[in-house]
């Protein structure tokens, strides 16, 4: 499913919507070039989760952690990985738990080491806006996608 996001507010709104469809244990991939809005979408999602503080780019630290009520959210940026083996090296599996939510930017750097995601979102430049393509896991519920689409707030088409 493809959505047009005319501005930053629309990217934030999509992030907020998406949070309603996630549950503990969910894994989300975020693809897109530099400046496509991946971290902005995560900020929207974290706002819906009740986090009001800063949402820093994890490019420098690899992972930023957010303790939410009953849930820990991990926001990864694998941009700097040179080989998927490095995921094992920093204990990646310890982050994928039934009580955690993992959002991963640049999942392609993780290769086959990463399990299949529940959602995969690709953000593309459609300047001045962005376009988002959302996919669920193979065998996932196709109705979920139309629900996210129909639940999309004004400004997203």
């Amino acid at each position: 499913m493809r959505l047009f996001l005319p501005d930053e507010a629309a990217t934030l709104a999509l992030g907020r919507r998406l949070f309603e469809f996630l549950k503990p244990g969910s894994l989300v991939f975020l693809r897109g070039t530099l400046g496509a809005g991946k971290t902005t979408l995560v900020r929207g999602l974290l706002r819906a989760a009740g986090h009001q503080g800063a949402v820093k780019s994890p490019t420098f630290t690899l992972v930023e952690e957010y303790a939410l009520p009953g849930l820990t959210l991990y926001h990864f940026d694998l941009y700097r990985l040179t080989s998927p083996d490095e995921l094992e090296w920093f204990g990646f599996r310890d982050y994928l738990r039934s009580d955690s939510l993992c959002l991963i930017e640049w999942p392609e750097r993780g290769g086959d080491t990463l399990p299949a995601p529940d959602f995969s979102i690709e953000l593309e430049l459609d300047l001045p806006g962005r376009a988002a393509t959302i996919e669920t896991a193979p065998g996932g519920d196709p109705e979920l996608l139309s629900e996210i689409g129909s639940a999309a707030p004004p400004g997203i088409s």
Binding site: A54, V55, F60
Partner: peptide
């Protein structure tokens, strides 16, 4: 005060890439 998203140096690095 602090950066709410990208650090200034990080912004330089990313714009350099662009």
């Amino acid at each position: 005060g602090e950066s709410l998203d990208d650090a200034a140096g990080e912004a330089f690095d990313k714009v350099a890439k662009m």
